[in-house]
């Protein structure tokens, strides 16, 4: 079944905020909205394969970036994706100051809770989407 939204997280491997982005994406697509969202790895977009491009062009994207370089949002848009919402973990942290993330391979409790808070925000966004790309 075609998902209502593609969730594209930052693929950074060196920083905590990238890990929070990835963990949020896992929580949305596996725990909170497994039926209506799908995780799309950023590296697949780099190659631009036909199947990936078709799915990207026809499904709204929620990009979750770790830092202001905004690789997820930029690459998705560059590859023809309709980025419906571009979120930053750093903004989520500002909204949840008490959840201080740490760790990369293994997030601390603050990082996991921040990922959960962000995942719930993304899940709400997914609920508001109808799976169609508005080309108007």
């Amino acid at each position: 079944m075609k998902p209502k939204a593609l969730i594209i997280p930052c693929s950074g491997i060196g920083k905590t905020l990238g890990s929070v982005a990835r963990e949020s994406a896992f929580r949305v697509t596996e725990d909170l909205r497994p039926e209506t969202s799908r995780l799309m790895p950023l590296s697949l977009l780099v190659l631009g394969e036909e199947d990936t491009r078709k799915l990207l062009a026809s499904t709204p994207v929620v990009a979750i970036d770790g830092c202001t370089k905004s690789c997820a949002a930029k690459v998705a848009a560059e590859r023809g994706g309709a980025v419906s919402r571009a979120l930053q973990v750093s903004d989520a942290f500002k909204r949840h100051r008490g959840l201080k993330p740490d760790g990369v391979a293994q997030l601390n409790e603050g990082g996991l809770q921040l990922a959960q808070a962000l995942a719930e925000e993304v899940a709400n966004l997914v609920d508001q989407m109808d799976g169609e790309v508005n080309n108007a």
């Binding site: 693929s11 780099v46 370089k69 690789c71 930029k74």
Partner: peptide, 28 residues
């Protein structure tokens, strides 16, 4: 892949390795 990369950077070959994430080639 990702965790092995970190293992090399942190434990096996610190000082002699660096990384960059793939999408930065496009976004950077």
């Amino acid at each position: 892949s990702r965790l092995a990369t970190r293992r090399v950077l942190e434990t096996l070959q610190p000082e002699r390795t660096v990384t960059i994430c793939l999408p930065l080639f496009l976004a950077g």
